[in-house]
Structures are given as structure tokens and as C-alpha cells.
Computed example of a mutant assay.
Amino acid sequence: MSKQMAVELENPETLADKNSPGSKNGKMKECVSGEAAELKLSLEMAGQSDPHLTLFSAEEIEFVAEDEMVEIVPNMRMDSLNLICGDYGPFYPQIATEVPLWLAIALKKRGKCAIRPPEWMSVEKLTQTLEAERESQGSFQILPFHYVEISKLLFDHARDDVPDMYLVRSLIEDIRDVRFHKVETSLESIDTRTSAVKIKDLSAMEVNIVRPFVGRALQAIYKHGNPELVPDQERMTNVQSQGHDHGQRRPLRRR
């Protein structure tokens, strides 16, 4: 279930002159620091999505994550389910089988099965991942693309099937915090010479939070670093006033 994720964001003004005058540096830094504060706030939310800061809500990402496959152990006999997304089953008591997470949760709510947590959710695996995340400051460990959403759904609907549930939850939160700190550190290198940002092995939630921030940050940098890209408000006002001087508008006739 592990996936690699590369985030590459191109700025629309990449071809513009990137040498900003010294007088603009203060405004640029102030703008970037404001964007960084906004990112820090969104990262602290960790799992919650503000519609003004992210592209998708937490519920939307969770909905997509429900298509991930998990293993269940049925306690009943049932024929195969022929669904649009695929065929699952047949189901026999105490014989493990794989189904989408949404189907596993539906059967679990009806007391028809137990859900086996993924191998990466064991205390041993999570402890190793946490140690590796702390040691490798320049890279991210490969985790399932929806590891946050999968763990949350299992904690909400199948906590009795997760051994050492509270310890597992604590380890996942620690891993998430370490990864967010590394994301912040990676984004500190953004400056006027940056035209793209590439970060590998991020999860869906991390991508959802970081991608819109980076796009706005790059746009703000180029806006304050290149005066020719900023519209001249005085000139725009003069053009509008000239448009009004061509003559009085005739009143429209009523039909």
C-alpha cells in the first residue's frame, strides 16, 4: 500500500526576471513570513482541514482513503458481493479476505467481521519508522499515502481490533509531528530564485496542506520581487476615468 508522492509546483511567472531590488526585500520577507505563519497554523491542525488553507476537506480525503484495501476475518458465511468497484468474497467464517476499507467498516458495524490492522500499524513498525524519521532530516520515510486517514478510521470504528491502540495512536501522532516539522524546514529555502518545490513521499493530508501554501508563497515572492508584475493602480484609475469621459450614457428604453 506504500506510495511515493512527489509534489512539484510551477509558478506561472517562472520566466519573469527574478532579481528583485533591495527596497523590496523587506516587503517580500514580511509576506513570506506571513505565509509561513499561516502554514504553521494549518500544520498544527494536523488532520483538520480549513477550506481557506487547503484544496480538499479532511472528510473528502477520508472518503478517498476508504477505497484502500484491508484484511478482515468474517464470522459469517456469505456469497460474493458483485459491486461496481469489484467483486469481493465469498466470505467464510475465520478465513481472512481483503475488502475495501469502507466495506470492512460496514461489516464491522454490523458485527459481521473483525478488521486486521495493516502491518505498518504494529508498535514495532511504527517505532522503527519514528526513529528513522528523526534520524533522516533530509528525507521522509515511505508510508501509505493515506496512513493518517486509515489509522483514524480504524481508531474510530475498530479500536478493539487494534492491539495497544493508545500506544499506536501516540506513535502515529509523533510521526506526523516529526514529518510536519521536516516539511516546515524544507520550505524555509524558498526565495526569489525558487521556481518549483519538490518533496517526495508525502501523504495525502500533507500534500493537501502544503500544495496551496507553496503556490501562494511563490506568487507572493514574485509579486513583491518583480515590480513590473504588480498592476499600477494609478494608471488603472486613469484608464477607467478616461473611459467615463467618452460621453454620457443614454438611458435604456423600457420595453
Score class of each variant (00 low, 15 high):
Val7His: 00
Asn11Ile: 06
Pro12Gln: 05
Thr14Trp: 11
Leu15Arg: 11
Pro21Cys: 07
Gly22Ala: 12
Glu30Ala: 09
Val32Ile: 14
Ser33Val: 10
Ser33Gln: 15
Ala36Asp: 07
Glu38Gln: 09
Leu39Ala: 03
Leu39Gly: 01
Leu41Cys: 04
Leu43Ser: 03
Leu43Phe: 09
Glu44Arg: 07
Glu44Asn: 05
Met45Lys: 11
Ser49Trp: 03
Pro51Thr: 07
Phe56Asn: 09
Ala65Cys: 06
Glu66Trp: 00
Glu68Pro: 04
Glu71Ser: 03
Pro74Ala: 09
Asp79Phe: 07
Ser80Trp: 06
Leu81Gly: 02
Leu83Phe: 11
Ile84Gly: 00
Gln94Ser: 12
Pro100Tyr: 10
Leu103Val: 15
Ala104Thr: 07
Ile105Gln: 05
Ile105Ser: 04
Lys108Arg: 15
Gly111Tyr: 14
Cys113Asp: 11
Cys113Ala: 14
Ala114Gln: 14
Pro118Leu: 12
Glu119Gly: 04
Trp120Glu: 11
Met121His: 10
Lys125Arg: 14
Thr127Trp: 04
Thr127Gly: 13
Gln128Tyr: 07
Thr129Ala: 06
Glu131Lys: 13
Glu135Leu: 09
Gln137Leu: 08
Gly138Trp: 10
Gly138Lys: 13
Gln141Trp: 06
Ile142Arg: 11
Leu143Phe: 11
His146Val: 03
Leu153Ile: 13
Asp156Cys: 05
Asp160Trp: 05
Val162Ile: 15
Val168Arg: 11
Leu171Asn: 04
Ile172Ser: 02
Arg176His: 05
Arg179Gln: 03
His181Lys: 06
Val183Leu: 09
Val183Lys: 01
Glu184Phe: 01
Ser186Ala: 06
Leu187His: 02
Glu188Lys: 12
Ser189Phe: 04
Ala196Asp: 08
Ala196Lys: 07
Met205Trp: 00
Arg211Tyr: 07
Arg211Asn: 05
Leu218Asp: 01
His224Thr: 02
Gly225Leu: 04
Asn226Arg: 11
Asn226Gly: 06
Asn226His: 10
Asn226Thr: 11
Leu229Thr: 09
Gln233Leu: 15
Asn238His: 13
His244Pro: 02
Gly247Ile: 11
Gly247Val: 12
Gln248His: 14
Gln248Glu: 14
Gln248Tyr: 14
Arg250Tyr: 07
Leu252Ser: 10
Leu252Thr: 10
Arg253Val: 15
